[in-house]
Design a protein around this nucleic acid. Structure first.
Lengths: 131, 131
DNA sequence: TCAGTTGCTTACGTTGAGGTAAGTTATGGG
DNA sequence: CCCATAACTTACCTCAACGTAAGCAACTGA
């Protein structure tokens, strides 16, 4: 065998044009917005099924507008199912799908990473800022 | 023992106020922007160390402005080290830190999830859109 | 008649992310 | 003298994300 690696011989842009990283970027853009991760984690904490108003209480600071649009996006992506009941006042329940639950695993990986390393990030920021 | 679970008895907003999920949201906001994930993956592919212009070529579509600011953020967060050489024309190299490399593990979890499930997301979107 | 309830939507304004294009610095080579 | 080069920075503009506040539907109970 020759050298350990010569990645510069390959098309360097290959990774950014292949479909998987494109999907990851889309995924990260989706769950990287301001509220999605909190809504997903809260819904999981509430047993995987909750009413609109329960989520509203579970995610402090979120507005009805943002909760509504966040849930709509999650529903469109197949992460959540919306079920409405013909009652007055209306009752609507949101339930995580298998697909949504499956995303909790890699998400937990990020939660764990943050738990272990966020302090280090903070310190890096401080020492960068004070020069 | 009583019921299997009664999560609604707990403070439902607890998770969103605890520090770990707050860190995850910050983390997701950082790597959820338009270019960071591509820059990180490309830098890794290039052996963990690369010049500005190499990254520019590796990430098709990125502008100098965005590459510069993305790298600056990564440097500030301690993910990357910037090394400049007193030459003309200038040469600058960026190298991943251990912290940056450690983030690749949970990131790979997301890449794998996208690889397995993105098609399903697409289908969910289509069937949602056509009603 | 009227207030209260839930789960929204609509209107409007602000802010920041990101795109485009041009300028900058310092030097070697023709 | 002037251009090329690498790695930026700066100026300017646009658009989408997000916040705030109000409106709405449909029925119940006082």
């Amino acid at each position: 065998m020759g050298k350990a690696s010569q990645p510069r011989q390959l098309d360097p842009a290959a990774i950014c044009r292949s479909s998987d990283p494109l999907a990851v970027r889309e995924l990260l853009t989706k769950i990287g917005d301001k509220w999605t991760i909190f809504v997903v984690l809260s819904l999981d904490l509430l047993g995987g099924r909750a009413r609109f108003s329960e989520l509203e209480r579970a995610v402090p600071g979120i507005s009805q507008r943002m909760l509504s649009s966040t849930l709509k996006n999650l529903e469109r992506d197949g992460m959540v199912i919306r079920e409405m009941f013909a009652e007055v006042p209306p009752r609507v329940e949101y339930e995580m799908t298998d697909l949504g639950r499956s995303l909790l695993r890699p998400t937990q990986g990020l939660v764990d990473w943050a738990k272990e390393n966020w302090q280090q990030v903070r310190e890096a920021q401080s020492s960068y800022d004070e020069r």
